[in-house]
Computed example of a mutant assay.
Amino acid sequence: MKVLVTGAAGFIGFFVSQRLIADGHHVVGIDNMNHYYDVGLKHARLAQLEALPGFEFVELDLADRPAVATLFEQYQFNRVVHLAAQAGVRHSLKAPFEYVDSNFTGMMTILEGCRHHNIEHLVYASSSSVYGMNEAMPFSTSDNVDHPVSLYAASKKANELMAHSYSHLYGLPTTGLRFFTVYGPWGRPDMAYFLFAKAMLAGDPIKVFNFGKMKRDFTYIDDIVEGVVRVLNKVPAHNPDWHDGDPSSSKAPYKVYNIGNNNSVQLGEFISTLEKHLGVEANKQMMPIQPGDVEATAANIDDLVADVGFTPSTSIDKGLGEFVRWYKSYYG
């Protein structure tokens, strides 16, 4: 197939593109190469992708409506994996309009491209952040998610609603993936584990929010990629048995899944594991919880297991070990 991957120079997009190429697909990757974090890291990922036969790169901003329309017209994709977004919960408090351009307008241009070019399946990135004020855990896709606590979370919830409207109106098969705290080699430098490693190796203190009581369903990048690829091949169909108490599916060809490790880990344990692999003890600076953060996340992945037969299972110990090996190799 010919697959469009948006955000191809980003963390998840980089690995998904590699996997799709390895599976024999032709990948066209796009990215606007913005400066939210180190562009050098994005270029390094991109250099690896461009060395692979079966990959093309187009630098493009999804908010550029004519350019996106031309892209779809030129390449005639079979399927789309939409991973591009302005990431970061805390950054959304400082620069909200960046989220409007990337996450709202960007999703709109992709939906329009899919609508007008008979795309077989649109798979797009949502986030565990949509669960917001939900307290019952593990978080289930059957839960109501109408109380986000950040604009970033609201933008991801909006993407799910936008996708459903296009599935209903135009029969476009769409699947949203709520990712839970993705980590691993080549990751985003704004993520906690990346910041911790940098500070610990430099002998600087690390900021431990919510006094170390945060719990996250940390999910290793390989598990995320496996889930994305399996779901891409599981095109949603109309569900004639749908009832309005189930927000994860519809009478339209629409589906939403959680992809998480199904095992919440307290931040203190995560830091201890990172200390072990780095061989450095962290100087912890305890801090209160930050605006927009939630205390805990945990994924119910029953639908993912039932529909595509996949259970993420990489342990924190193995995943952080792989990250540290890459980090020391890349940064010397």
Rank of each mutant, 00 (worst) to 15 (best):
D222E: 14
D222L: 13
D223S: 13
V225F: 14
V225P: 15
G227H: 15
G227K: 14
V228C: 08
V229G: 08
R230M: 01
V231W: 08
L232S: 12
L232F: 15
N233I: 10
N233R: 12
N233F: 07
N233L: 10
N233M: 09
K234S: 06
K234L: 11
K234D: 15
V235K: 06
V235L: 15
V235M: 11
P236D: 13
H238R: 15
H238N: 11
H238D: 12
N239W: 09
N239K: 10
N239D: 04
P240R: 14
P240F: 12
D241Y: 11
D241E: 14
D241M: 13
D241F: 15
D241Q: 13
W242V: 11
D244L: 12
D244T: 12
G245W: 09
S248D: 15
S249T: 13
S249P: 11
S249Y: 15
S250G: 11
S250F: 13
S250K: 08
K251L: 14
K251R: 15
A252Y: 05
Y254T: 10
Y254L: 10
Y254M: 09
K255F: 15
K255T: 11
K255Q: 05
V256N: 11
V256W: 13
V256G: 08
Y257A: 13
N258Y: 03
N258K: 05
N258T: 03
I259S: 04
I259N: 07
I259A: 03
G260A: 14
N261C: 08
N262C: 05
N263Y: 08
N263P: 13
N263A: 07
S264C: 06
S264K: 01
Q266I: 05
Q266D: 10
L267P: 06
E269C: 08
E269N: 15
F270L: 00
F270E: 02
T273L: 03
T273W: 03
L274C: 08
E275V: 01
E275T: 00
K276V: 03
K276C: 05
E281C: 03
E281T: 04
A282G: 06
N283M: 09
Q285A: 07
M286L: 06
M286G: 05
M287F: 12
M287P: 12
P288F: 07
Q290G: 07
Q290N: 08
Q290S: 06
P291I: 12
P291L: 09
P291F: 12
G292C: 05
D293I: 04
E295C: 02
T297C: 04
A298N: 01
A298G: 02
A298L: 01
A299D: 00
N300M: 02
N300K: 01
N300H: 03
D302E: 09
D302P: 02
D302M: 05
D302N: 02
D303R: 06
V305Y: 01
V305S: 02
A306G: 03
A306P: 06
A306N: 04
D307A: 04
D307K: 02
D307P: 01
V308S: 07
G309M: 03
G309P: 05
G309Q: 03
F310N: 00
F310V: 03
T311N: 00
P312K: 01
P312I: 02
S313M: 01
S313V: 01
T314V: 02
S315N: 00
S315I: 07
I316N: 01
I316K: 00
I316V: 05
I316T: 05
D317N: 09
D317I: 03
